[in-house]
Design a protein around this nucleic acid. Structure first.
Lengths: 159, 159
DNA sequence: TGCATTAGTTATCGCCACTAACTAAAAATC
DNA sequence: GATTTTTAGTTAGTGGCGATAACTAATGCA
């Protein structure tokens, strides 16, 4: 009966602009800016989702399942940087909504391959489109060249 | 007696590089890249801190307190985008470590002005230096121009 | 056959947000 | 000037979602 109010697990955006409050050095740090943009992106994405429980984290998982059909849970956990229990619960989430299914691996009957259901294919396609839109909204103040530049610099940092 | 193991409340970095797992469209999204960099930055910063409980969020609060002495809790909450109870607890955290103190506002005796203690001044200075170093490590693969460019693009998004 | 390993689940805990409800002080209303 | 409403901060309770430890079942190697 619990109806999932906006449990936005990410803090609201700090008010760096508040003219009465000085953020000091924070505003000059790449790490801080990146966090601000992430919070903003998280919020934009959540708004676009049909259900506030569909978080960026869960969307990422769905993308991995969609792009790598039959992936085992442990591989999924590793790729996402999650513990196996957390991964298991996240799969439960999508399974409960009829989006993915666990198929026993015939070569190793302990393991499951995770697959999108027929219905899941549609939902995935829909969500992907929305994710893309939301990313476009996030970067709407930048030109095409600036977006490319930004993505290049960011991936230089983390890859 | 609980000894605060690495309770890194932020997921470990996803393994985008895993050659067996395709991240699909995620790798092309600014929102995703930004999250990756943030997780990385969070982890780098946490490592530099003398106590793993000193998180980026708490450092941000300390910076605000240091740069805006006497700020009331409600203003602090607003600037940080936090609820008042959460802010109150975060202040408790620093107060318990002798870093900040609550001084009753003589004009409004319901309110507290938050100030750094003498000792807090030193700790603040030390942490700021470490934060700066950690941000430099985060961006070490980028040139000075690239860092400026990156910060400019990021702040264009969120300000 | 038997023991160590591995996939996944269950149980438990911890952190840190949130809202609701409370106290005390201040401001507004009459 | 007494009463009501609002505001600052705290306390209590809830929830999400990570983590680890302990468990079951299947596998693999001696």
């Amino acid at each position: 009966m619990k109806e999932n109010k906006d449990n936005s697990k990410v803090s609201r955006l700090p008010k760096v602009q508040d003219e009465n409050v000085d953020f000091g050095m924070m505003a000059t740090l790449t790490g801080f800016s990146v966090k601000m943009v992430w919070i903003l992106g998280y919020s934009l994405l959540s708004q676009k989702m049909p259900d506030p429980a569909i978080t960026p984290q869960r969307v990422t998982m769905l993308e991995l399942i969609g792009c790598n059909p039959g992936l085992a849970q442990t591989q999924l956990a590793h790729a996402l940087g999650l513990s196996r229990p957390a991964t298991s619960l996240a799969i439960d989430f999508w399974q409960a909504r009829g989006v993915v299914e666990r198929r026993v691996d015939q070569d190793d009957r302990r393991a499951f391959g995770i697959h999108l259901t027929k219905q899941g294919q549609c939902i995935w396609a829909d969500l992907r489109a929305k994710v893309k839109q939301s990313d476009e909204i996030l970067t709407k103040r930048l030109s095409e060249e600036e977006i490319e530049q930004l993505n290049r610099l960011l991936s230089k940092i983390y890859s």
